[in-house]
Write a protein that binds this DNA or RNA. Structure first.
Length: 726
DNA sequence: AAGGGCTTCGATAGCT
C-alpha cells in the first residue's frame, strides 16, 4: 500500500486488509495526514458511498487507539437511522482495536446509555438533540466524559447548513469548546458531506470565530450518467399521475431495484399503491413500497433492509427521506416523476444510482396538460418540462447547484440557545451569553442592541429573570419550556394523528389532513377504510379495504432559484436544450417530450417572449419574467398592495381585470413601482409571521425583519426590473 | 384552475 497507509495503526491496517481492499481510495489517502495532525478542521466532500466515513475514522481511530479514558471521537448525525448504520459499520473496526463505540439517541435503551455513562471511552454517536439534552441535564458528566475529546465529526453536514438545526449544532460545538477551556487548541471539527454549494464557504460555516485552519479534501467528479426525459399528455387539470406514465414506470422498475422520487407524500402514496395494483393484476408479488417521513419506523426499516438485498427486486417510491446517506446499497436507476425542485437534491438523488462499474441512470417522467380553454401560459410554455431540462443542464453542463442560504437570522433558535445555556449553567450573565452565542458563536449576525431587545422581551414573557447580582436565570415560563422533553429540538413539529391498524402503528397524519370516519384512503402503499377517529387519543383506526385516494399532506414552499429561471429562459431563447458532448449535440428527450418542448417554444416565439414580458389572455395579464420565486413573491406583494387582484403560478404573475399598458408602464419604471418598500415593510403587512418554533418569544420588530429577509428581496427585485427592458 | 420535503426529544409509571 502507500505512505499514508503505513501511518495507520497496525490493527487498523489489518482491518483494511480484511475488507479485501486493494488500496485506499483517493480521499481516504488524502485525509490521513490532516486528521492525524489534529491541527486543523477538515472538510471531506465526496459523493455517496465513496468511503468518506472511513476516510475520517481510519486515521482518527489510529489516533485514539490507546486512549482508554473519556470519549475520543464525538460523531454527530442528523438522523437516528444513520447512527444505527454507522454503528454497524464501525463495530468490526472497533472490535479489532478493542475500542468502545456507543450509539446514543432517543431510541437507545436506558440500560445501554447508563453503561456508556459509567465508562465513557472510544466513540460516541449522537444526534444534536441528545447532546443538547446531556448538556442541560448533566453538564458535569459532559465535561468529564469529553475532557479528552480529540475530534468532533459531523456526517451529512450539508443537511445542517442554513437550518435551525445547523445553528444549534454549531452552538453546541462552541459550548463544548467552552467547557474544555484548559485545552491549547479547540477540538478539531470534521465535516463529511456529499453536496456543498460552495465548498470554500464551508470552513466558515463549520467554525465561526475561525481560530483554526481548515483543510478541504474533495473527491473526484461524478461518474458516467445515462439519462432520458419522457413526456406525457395529461387531461387538463389531472390530479394523479397519468396511466401511461404509470405503465412505463412499472415496466422500467419491475424486476429491478429502483428509487422513484415523486416530490410529495401524496404522489408517493398514490404511485406506490397503483404500481402494487399492477403487480397484483399481473400475478406477480408486489415489489413497490412507499417511503416517507409520515410512515412508521418499522415500515421504513423494512423497506431499507429489503433494498439492501440485491437478489430481491424492490422499488422504493420515496420523498427526500432516501436522499441522505442511509445504507440502502446502490440501485439500478433513479426515476424522477414530475420536475425536481433543485439541482442540489437531484445531485443527491443521483448519488444513489450506479452500481460498481456501471453508469448511473436517470429517467424523468414529466406530465403536461393537454391544451384546452382553461390552460394558462405556464401550461402552454410547458414549464414543468422546461424546469426539468434546465435543472438537468445546470447539473451536467454547468456543474452548479444551489448554495445553502446561511444568512437567515433564526431568532427562534437564538431564544432557544439562550434558554439552553442558562439551563446548562444554572444561570449566566448577559455579556457571557452574547460572547458565546453571538460574538464567538453561530449568531454572529445579531447586533448588541438586537440581543438586548431579545433579552428584555424574554424577561417580559417570563422566560428569564434577572437576579440581584445581575445574573440571568430561568423564569416561570422558561422553566416550563426547558423541562418539557420537546425542548431539545429547535424545529417545529406539527400536531399529528397516529394511524393504527390491528393495534399496530403504521404511521402518522397531520391533523390538518382532516380524515373522517368512513373515508377511504391510500396510506403506506395500501388501501384502507377509516373505521374511527379518536380526537382525544389523536388516533385514526383503519382497516384494509379497496379504492381511496391519498390524504392531504401539507408542506412548506420550496422556492426556485434565480439560476434555474435564467437557464429556462436561455433554453427557449436559443431554442436548443441539447447537451454538447465532445462537439456533438446529445438529445435526451423522448419523442413526446420533444413535441412538448416544440409546443412550448412555439408559444414562446408567438408571444415574442425573449423581448416581451406580458401576455394578455383569458381576462388576465400574465407577467412572464423568468425571475426567482423570491422576486416573484416580492412583486406579487407590491402589486397586491396597490389593490390589484394578483396571484402567481410556476413563477408567472397573474393579475386580473387590468390594462396591460398600465402594468407595463409600472414594470418599466421600477423606482415608481417599488416606491419606498423594504423587505421589512412588506413583511409588516402580513398577518402571521410565526414560522419557527420559538418565534412567539421573539420581539415583533425583529420578526418582521427576519421574515422579510427570508421571503422577499426588494433590492434584487429592483435590480432585476432595471435589467428587464434593456 | 393550479404546487411543495425532512429531521428529533427524557423520565417515569405501570405493566409483563
Amino acid at each position: 500500500m502507500s505512505i499514508g497507509f503505513n501511518q495507520l495503526d497496525h490493527r487498523v491496517q489489518r482491518w483494511v486488509h480484511r475488507q479485501k481492499w486493494k488500496n485506499l481510495r483517493d480521499i481516504q489517502e488524502q485525509a490521513i495526514g490532516p486528521i492525524l495532525k489534529e491541527g486543523s478542521d477538515v472538510v471531506i466532500s465526496a459523493s455517496t458511498a465513496s468511503g468518506k466515513t472511513e476516510a475520517f475514522f481510519l486515521p482518527a481511530c489510529t489516533k485514539i487507539a490507546d486512549q482508554d479514558e473519556g470519549f475520543g471521537i464525538l460523531y454527530l448525525s442528523p438522523l437516528k437511522a444513520l447512527i444505527n448504520d454507522q454503528y454497524r459499520r464501525l463495530e468490526g473496526l472497533c472490535e479489532m482495536l478493542d475500542m468502545n463505540v456507543v450509539p446514543w439517541h432517543g431510541d437507545i435503551s436506558q440500560a445501554r446509555r447508563n453503561k456508556a455513562k459509567k465508562n465513557p471511552s472510544g466513540i460516541i454517536l449522537m444526534t444534536p438533540e441528545s447532546l443538547e439534552a446531556r448538556l442541560i441535564k448533566d453538564m458535569g458528566w459532559v465535561r468529564r466524559a469529553f475532557s479528552f475529546l480529540r475530534y468532533i465529526v459531523i456526517d451529512e453536514f450539508h443537511a445542517f447548513v442554513g437550518t435551525e438545526r445547523g445553528q444549534q449544532l454549531t452552538s453546541l460545538m462552541n459550548r463544548l469548546d467552552a467547557l474544555a477551556q484548559d485545552r491549547d487548541l479547540p477540538i478539531p471539527r470534521v465535516a463529511l458531506s456529499a453536496t456543498l454549494g460552495n465548498i470554500n464557504d464551508t470552513p466558515a460555516l463549520l467554525r465561526q470565530n475561525y481560530n483554526m485552519p481548515c483543510e478541504i479534501i474533495q473527491g473526484k467528479g461524478e461518474s458516467e450518467l445515462q439519462l432520458v426525459v419522457k413526456g406525457y399528455y395529461d387531461l387538463p387539470g389531472a390530479q394523479r399521475l397519468n396511466e401511461n406514465a404509470l405503465q412505463d414506470l412499472y415496466a422500467i422498475c419491475r424486476g429491478g431495484s429502483h428509487l422513484v422520487f415523486a416530490n410529495s407524500r401524496g404522489n408517493t402514496e398514490d404511485i406506490a399503491a397503483r404500481a402494487s395494483d399492477l403487480c397484483e393484476n399481473n400475478f406477480v408479488p408486489n415489489e413497490f413500497f412507499p417511503h416517507h417521513g409520515s410512515l412508521s419506523r418499522e415500515l421504513r426499516e423494512f423497506l431499507e433492509k429489503r433494498l439492501q438485498k440485491e437478489d430481491l427486486p424492490t422499488t422504493a417510491v420515496c420523498t427526500m427521506t432516501l436522499e441522505l446517506g442511509i445504507d440502502i446499497g446502490k440501485v439500478d436507476s433513479v426515476i424522477q416523476v414530475t420536475p425536481p425542485h433543485s439541482v442540489a437534491s437531484l445531485r443527491q438523488r443521483m448519488g444513489r444510482s450506479g452500481r460498481r462499474g456501471t453508469p448511473s441512470v436517470l429517467r424523468m417522467l414529466i406530465p403536461e396538460d393537454k391544451i384546452s380553454h382553461i390552460s394558462s401560459p405556464g401550461d402552454k410554455l410547458r414549464l414543468r418540462l422546461l424546469q426539468s431540462i434546465a435543472i438537468i443542464r445546470l447539473y451536467i453542463v454547468e456543474k452548479w447547484y444551489e448554495p445553502a442560504e446561511s444568512s437567515h437570522f433564526h431568532f427562534s433558535t437564538l431564544v432557544h440557545q439562550i434558554l439552553a445555556l442558562i439551563a446548562q449553567w444554572g444561570g449566566a450573565r448577559a455579556a457571557q451569553i452574547f460572547d458565546q452565542l453571538c460574538d464567538k458563536g453561530s449568531f454572529g449576525n445579531v447586533t448588541i442592541p438586537d440581543f438586548k431587545k431579545i433579552l428584555t422581551h424574554m424577561g417580559k414573557k417570563e422566560l428569564i429573570q434577572q437576579m440581584h447580582n445581575g445574573e440571568l436565570v430561568l423564569g416561570i415560563e422558561g422553566e416550563r419550556l426547558v423541562n418539557n422533553y420537546n425542548f431539545y429540538t429547535v424545529f417545529n413539529t406539527p400536531e399529528e394523528y397516529r394511524v393504527v391498524n390491528n393495534e399496530k402503528t403504521i404511521g402518522s397524519l397531520p391533523t390538518e389532513s382532516l380524515v373522517t370516519k368512513g373515508q377511504h384512503i391510500i396510506f403506506a402503499g395500501r388501501r384502507w377504510k377509516v373505521n374511527d377517529v379518536d380526537e382525544e387519543k389523536k388516533t385514526v383506526y383503519v382497516n384494509l379495504s379497496k379504492g381511496g385516494v391519498p390524504p392531504k399532506f401539507i408542506g412548506d414552499p420550496i422556492p426556485l432559484h434565480q439560476k434555474i429561471r435564467d437557464e429556462m429562459y436561455k433554453i427557449f431563447n436559443t431554442g436548443d436544450y441539447r447537451i454538447d458532448i465532445g462537439g456533438s449535440k446529445v438529445d435526451f428527450l423522448d419523442s413526446s417530450a420533444r413535441n412538448l418542448f416544440k409546443e412550448g417554444l412555439e408559444y414562446f416565439n408567438k408571444h415574442d417572449l425573449s423581448r416581451n414580458k406580458i401576455i394578455n389572455e383569458n381576462g388576465y395579464v400574465y407577467l412572464v419574467l423568468w425571475a426567482s420565486d423570491k422576486i416573484v413573491k416580492t412583486l406579487q406583494m407590491i402589486f397586491g398592495s396597490k389593490g390589484y387582484e394578483v396571484s402567481s403560478f410556476h413563477g408567472i404573475i397573474e393579475i386580473k381585470n387590468v390594462d396591460r399598458h398600465k402594468i407595463e408602464n409600472l414594470l418599466k419604471n421600477p423606482s415608481i413601482l417599488m416606491g419606498e418598500w423594504t423587505n421589512a415593510k412588506l413583511s409588516s403587512i402580513i398577518g402571521v409571521r410565526h414560522i419557527e418554533k420559538y418565534d412567539e418569544y421573539v420581539p415583533d420588530d425583529l420578526l418582521i425583519n427576519s421574515y422579510g429577509n427570508r421571503y422577499f428581496d426588494v433590492k434584487a427585485t429592483k435590480h432585476f426590473l432595471e435589467q428587464l427592458y434593456v
